[in-house]
Amino acid sequence: MLVITALTVVRTASLFAVVMLSGVFSLLSALLLVTLDAVDVAFTEAAVGAGISTVLMLSTLALTSRHERPSKLSPVVPLFVVLVTGAALFYGTLDMPNFGSADAPAMLHVYPEYMERSQHEIGVPNVVTGILASYRGYDTLGETAVVFTAGVGVLMLLSGLRRRREDDEDDDGENQRGSG
């Protein structure tokens, strides 16, 4: 399902449909994350990926155009790049542990300690919340800084939009008056 959605995104020219498909993709991936036991992540992905980012992209489309111009680039070079990268990644997975195995390296070092200590030290039933807010609190602080910076950037980029538009219209009006 995910692969089909992604491939449809490649083929579709209508940008509105592409944005909707990206929302569908996020929702499907949230379902997959639930089956992988990551309920918190699935929750965030459904809210942020399928909700907020779709709304943002739609508002961008409202401010820009809706259709994609047919691409004149030849698909051979990108396809080659993609295939080589994919082959390299595939080669990398050959050393990975089997899916769902309990004796994978990721399960042996930090994981038991966190599970053990967060029971006594934090006392929050949800381990993900406990680690996020307590052990890795500075990460969350940095994340807040990133979001703040992005918000300031967006405001700075878009703040003059309406003013510039009015200026343009004034210019157009003057030109028309001059020519008329």
Binding site: V41, E143, V147
Partner: peptide, 13 residues
Amino acid sequence: NPLPHVLILTAIV
């Protein structure tokens, strides 16, 4: 394992 979940939560935002 909850550790990837924590990291990816941050990454999504």
